[in-house]
């Protein structure tokens, strides 16, 4: 079994190499055509627009010429095999890659018609506008209350204690955590279970009332029950927010998203409505992945 999988994998890699070397022979414009994403990259009501995004880590070309829109009030799922660059791409959307020294981003990503990689763009308000939830739940080693209150406090969103209490409660309610923690807000956030911690992190993110929420495999460290709760939450949040989620689980993508983007080795291979991607993928690589021939 193992052997077969490996053989297939090798086979596939040869394919890609052939594919790449093809591009080597063609001119630059043609190569762009060859790599061009299958499907409709544009959303009906776009909130963020990415065009020709390239990311380099030192010498490594991690994201190759990716263009896609994030539609308003919709969940965009990004899927693909490990190391395909989907997380890297997600982290570009609120410039979290800035914290990595040799990371270099080109192309345009805009929100409200403003390029977020423009020199005049300030990352602090950007991240308040585009929030992020991480793969591993990362509550601060503070109380549950202080975890939620952290964002509003630093941004000066509330005037007094009462307003803050209200905001904390509201955020926890939206994250579906209120019932479980309302009686122990003063206890450390690190004492919660994994699923609760992740919902705490989501609550922490929405306490700043961002417009876009980026989620980087938010359920990969959670058990199935906790996963179900978070998925439910994502679905509810869609009403008010624009969400991009990176996931390893195709079922999850199918359950929570309206649109799906399939990444492969730094290329965005195909974008389309989730229904279409899962039912009739247009690109061979997407089909191979969906049908589980590799991944």
């Amino acid at each position: 079994m193992d052997n077969v999988a490996t053989a297939e994998h090798t086979d596939f890699e040869e394919n890609t190499i052939a594919h790449t070397s093809d591009m080597g022979h063609s001119t630059a414009t043609v190569s762009r055509d060859v790599r061009k994403t299958v499907g409709d990259i544009e959303a009906e009501n776009p909130r963020m627009i990415c065009r020709g995004v390239n990311v380099h880590y030192g010498d490594k070309h991690a994201i190759k010429d990716v263009s896609v829109d994030l539609g308003k009030n919709e969940v965009l799922a990004m899927i693909g095999p490990s190391g395909c660059g989907k997380s890297t791409f997600l982290r570009c959307l609120n410039r979290m890659n800035d914290t990595i020294d040799d990371c270099h981003v080109t192309g345009s990503i805009s929100i409200d018609e403003q390029d977020i990689y423009d020199k005049s763009m300030d990352v602090v308000p950007l991240r308040a506008q585009v929030g992020m939830v991480f793969q591993k739940p990362n509550p601060f080693p503070k109380s549950i209350y202080d975890n939620i209150a952290y964002g509003p406090r630093i941004h000066g969103l509330v005037e007094d204690k009462e307003e803050l209490d209200h905001l904390v409660e509201g955020s926890l309610r939206k994250a579906g955590l209120w019932a479980e923690v309302s009686d122990r807000l003063a206890q450390p956030g690190t004492g919660l279970s994994g699923g609760q911690q992740q919902r705490l992190c989501i609550a922490r993110t929405i306490a700043v009332s961002p417009e876009v929420i980026l989620m980087d495999e938010p359920c990969s460290a959670l058990d199935p029950i906790a996963t179900a709760k978070v998925e439910e939450l994502i679905d509810e949040l869609r009403e008010n927010y624009t969400i991009a989620i990176v996931t390893h689980s195709m079922q999850q993508a199918a359950r929570v998203s309206q649109r799906t983007a399939y990444f492969h080795l730094g290329d965005l291979i195909e974008v389309g409505s989730t229904e279409q991607i899962f039912n009739m993928p247009r690109h061979q690589l997407t089909e191979d992945y969906i049908t589980g021939r590799f991944g």
């Binding site: 979290m96 914290t99 990352v123 602090v124 308000p125 939830v133 991480f134 601060f140 922490r204 993110t205």
Partner: peptide
Amino acid sequence: SLRDGAYGLGATRSETIRQVIIP
């Protein structure tokens, strides 16, 4: 991940240091 959490909320470097890293 803790730094990411704070930066992801839009904290500045000094805010992250003083309120997350140091504690």
